[in-house]
Design a protein around this nucleic acid. Structure first.
Length: 173
DNA sequence: ACGATGATGAAC
DNA sequence: TTCATCATCGTA
C-alpha cells in the first residue's frame, strides 16, 4: 500500500519527522517521467534559534518560506548551481524544515535535485501529486539500529554549539 | 585542492 | 552598491 504524506505527517516535531522520513519515498513526475527514490539521508533545521538554519536570519524574501505551513517545499540555490530541497515542518511560524540530502541512487542534495529535475519553480509549493513532487509511505520499515546520527554537513558557520548538533540522520549501509 | 557560478545578506 | 559567503560537486 502506498500513502501520500500530507500536512499531518509534517506537523510533528522536526527531529521525529527527519528520522521517519528515512525509508519513505520521494516521487517526482516533473517533466512527465515518474521517478521514485527511497530517502536515505536527511538533516533537521529546528527553528530561528538554530544558527545553522536559514531561518536564524529572521524573515527575509528567501527565508519567509520556512515560516510557512507544514508540508510546503523550501527550495533554494547554493553555490550558484545546486538546488536544495527542504520540506517545512511543524506549525506555521516555527521556521523549521528537513533537508533531503540523499536517496538510494543519488548521493548528495545537489545531485538528487538535478536527477529528479527539481528547481526553484516548486519553492513555496505544497508537496503533492498535483505539484509533481510528493512523498510516499510504501511501508518499508527502518529499524532504529539501522539509523546513524551525525552533525550536519557544511554548517561550520553555525558556531560551536549548533554546528555540532547531531541533526543528520542516515540509513546505515 | 580547487574552480564553477549566481543569489543572499550585511556592511558601507 | 560592493563584498564575502554559501545546507555542493566534479575534476585533479
Amino acid at each position: 500500500m502506498r500513502k501520500i504524506l500530507g500536512k499531518d505527517f509534517f506537523k510533528e516535531k522536526t527531529l521525529d519527522i527527519a528520522q521517519s522520513l528515512l525509508g519513505k519515498y520521494l516521487v517526482s513526475s516533473i517533466g512527465g517521467k515518474v521517478i521514485a527514490e527511497k530517502i536515505t539521508e536527511v538533516e533537521a533545521y529546528v527553528g530561528e534559534h538554530d544558527l545553522a538554519s536559514h531561518s536564524s536570519k529572521g524573515k527575509t524574501v528567501r527565508t519567509e518560506v520556512m515560516f510557512g505551513e507544514a508540508g510546503i517545499l523550501y527550495i533554494y540555490l547554493v553555490y550558484g548551481m545546486y538546488w536544495m530541497l527542504n520540506v517545512v515542518t511543524e506549525k506555521k511560524g516555527s521556521a523549521t524544515a528537513v533537508l533531503i540530502r540523499s536517496t538510494e541512487h543519488f548521493k548528495g542534495p545537489g545531485v538528487l535535485t538535478r536527477e529528479l529535475k527539481i528547481t526553484g519553480k516548486l519553492n513555496n509549493k505544497t508537496a503533492s501529486r498535483k505539484n509533481s513532487l510528493w512523498f510516499e509511505d510504501r511501508e518499508e520499515k527502518i529499524l532504529l539500529k539501522d539509523i546513524k546520527r551525525t552533525p550536519r554537513i557544511g554548517v561550520s558557520y553555525a558556531g560551536p554549539i549548533w554546528s555540532k548538533k547531531k541533526y543528520r540522520f542516515l540509513i546505515k549501509k
